[in-house]
Design a protein around this nucleic acid. Structure first.
Lengths: 349, 349
DNA sequence: TAGAGCCTGGACAACGTTGTCAGAAGCGGA
DNA sequence: TCCGCTTCTGACAACGTTGTCCAGGCTCTA
């Protein structure tokens, strides 16, 4: 039984048993504490024979280095935090995975949390991660005021914002070209003869939603088409409201013949609505969706590269950590229009 | 500037600046170290006036407690690890999210990693997480030998396996009823008149794949239908091989009139293949897929409840941590057959 | 064979926090 | 006024690791 067991049991009442420490390994191998540390960390200056004895002791005791103590001593944790909106959203899966891959390449682990689009929860998570002394943070912001991070930034926590910009602080940001993507999507519809085009998006307090709305307006303006209020629905987040919004703009006094949907969730709901209607309506969705090519018609989308967003952000973060200092930058990744049929439907009537 | 700054800078060359410690806060507030600790942890026995002074100092210095040191002292990290196959797979998103929610309810953070179906990587990740002293592990195993975890289990790391059972150790497991689900899916096809039914699944070394294959065989046997080798394709993981497998079993000497696909990825590929063929073929897919209801025909599936798997596993894990000891258990969650059309197509010819 | 130099190993302090324990201050009652 | 009690505060050790530094033993050369 490891030497430390009895004391710790008495003090903490830990019923889970106790792990052997380097001290225990040293005692068993008959060497000094630091020698064990050397073996564990592969440092030079240990004879093969001593090393073997130490390895045997480690094996026998099932020793595993305590990284908490290590971190305390060394200062770096080799872990980064990722705060996103919802792990279950298919858009964030690939993004998250890409961040993880980059972290792994740098020997770091990934801690992640979902903010559920709640600014308070985002802050709570970010600060909890800072208390764990993560080396860096990748944040998909829910809130629009990140001044609470100022002490952390000053203390050297590398930070990169993704998908939406930081609020009220100066930090690295990696974004998709939301404005350009939405503009292109709408321009595509206009090129196919549409003039009465609707937009259904998220609350404009969310940066991406606001930018996409702006892209919609830009394209309409460029084509000299005055936009009617009834053609725009903002803040329809749940399926019921999206459904109602779509039905209203399809049956008003000047019904739309085409719709740009502001994100993948909205797109899915609108597809359902359109499937029930006899007359075909053109559709361009922001964000790609799975199986979009198998539907009738295939769904034309403005696709973001979620993995590239994550990869770019994580690489930028590790560049900060490597000490390559640079002024905070705003990186914008292009979107891609993928035509599959639904965006090429001509205007009805 | 915090008192600790100069020394640490000299020692580590840390160019990221230094965080203030409780000692710095204590000095600034003109109180003792332990008093700061009391305030930070909300312990009783501090006069309002003292507390205010401490709070001000914390605010002014931007102090944030160092959880590494805390963990070292207290033993628990309030974090759990989740090892899954691929964060980007839509099946694992909801599962992961469910685990996170439960962790959150218990005040714990979630660290996760993808094994990419590689047993070595799974082990590497699991041990790295143990070195961080996570309180518990939720593992979707890639390998089939988990004896490497024995010292950790002995040391009290709570562990629950999900989706697939642990190999060669005794531990809690939460599974879907893969055998029953596949059996029901095939029985459904048989009930609609099919006799030549194909199965395309993953490598049988993966437990879920083996169980689903077994379910397929059971249903066929129950119906007294002898299975031909050409009807089964195992280990087809990438889309090209799945495509070839599907085409072969649809055009052999005794072509199948219906297919059970072994997981969501296979299902998607097979849908593409079937979409290209003139004659309708019945299809039941294991795992639900998004938009399955909007395809022509809608895709009939055997659905697992990924969120329930994650939730159940995480709850079980925290029950272990709460000290409610119990023998390792095997929990099996039911699957649900969702009929949408593709599984009700009658046999052609 | 003595002296110089290298290699290996170990004692010790420090990282930032919390638990223990004892001392100080304040207050009421005798 | 002094004692005893309560309430608040702080000194100190400990958690498990790593960096520093020195001692002792060895080899090699003159």
């Amino acid at each position: 039984m490891p030497e430390t067991t009895r004391r710790a049991d008495r003090l903490t009442g830990n019923r889970y048993g106790n792990r052997p420490t380097m001290k225990d390994v040293a005692a068993r191998a008959g060497v000094g504490l630091k020698t064990v540390s050397r073996v564990v960390n592969g440092e030079p200056g240990v004879t093969p024979d001593t090393e073997r004895r130490v390895q045997e002791a480690i094996e026998a005791l099932g020793f595993r280095r305590n990284d908490s103590a290590r971190v305390l001593r060394k200062g770096r944790t080799a872990s980064i935090g990722l705060i996103l909106e919802d792990l279950a959203d298919p858009f964030y899966g690939p993004l998250s995975r890409a961040v993880e891959e980059v972290a792994r390449a740098h020997g770091a682990l990934l801690i992640n949390g979902s903010s559920a689009e709640d600014p308070d929860r985002e802050q709570e998570l970010a600060l909890a991660l800072c208390a764990r002394r993560v080396d860096g943070l990748v944040i998909i912001p829910a809130g629009d005021d990140h001044r609470y991070l100022e002490p952390e930034l000053r203390a050297g926590v590398a930070t990169v914002f993704v998908d939406r910009p930081a609020g009220k602080i100066d930090a690295d940001v990696v974004l998709s070209d939301n404005h350009g993507g939405a503009r292109d999507g709408v321009a595509h519809l206009i090129a196919h003869g549409h003039r009465r085009i609707g937009f259904i998006g998220d609350m404009p307090r969310i940066h991406t939603a606001a930018e996409r709305l702006r892209g919609y307006r830009t394209a309409m303006e460029d084509a000299g088409i005055p936009v009617e209020d009834a053609w725009m629905s903002l803040g329809a987040t749940n399926p019921e409201r999206v459904r109602r919004a779509a039905e209203e703009m399809l049956s008003g006094p000047s019904p739309v013949t085409a719709i740009l949907t502001g994100n993948n969730r909205v797109t899915v709901t609108v597809i359902r609505v359109l499937a029930e209607r006899p007359r075909p309506v053109a559709l361009v969705g922001f964000d790609d969706i799975e199986l979009a090519d198998l539907l009738q018609p295939g769904v034309t989308v403005v696709a973001q590269d979620a993995a590239a967003l994550g990869r770019t952000a994580a690489e930028r973060l590790f560049r900060q950590l490597d000490g390559t200092f640079a002024a905070p930058e705003r990186i914008e990744l292009p979107t891609r229009l993928i035509t599959r049929g639904s965006g090429e439907v001509p205007p009805a009537g």
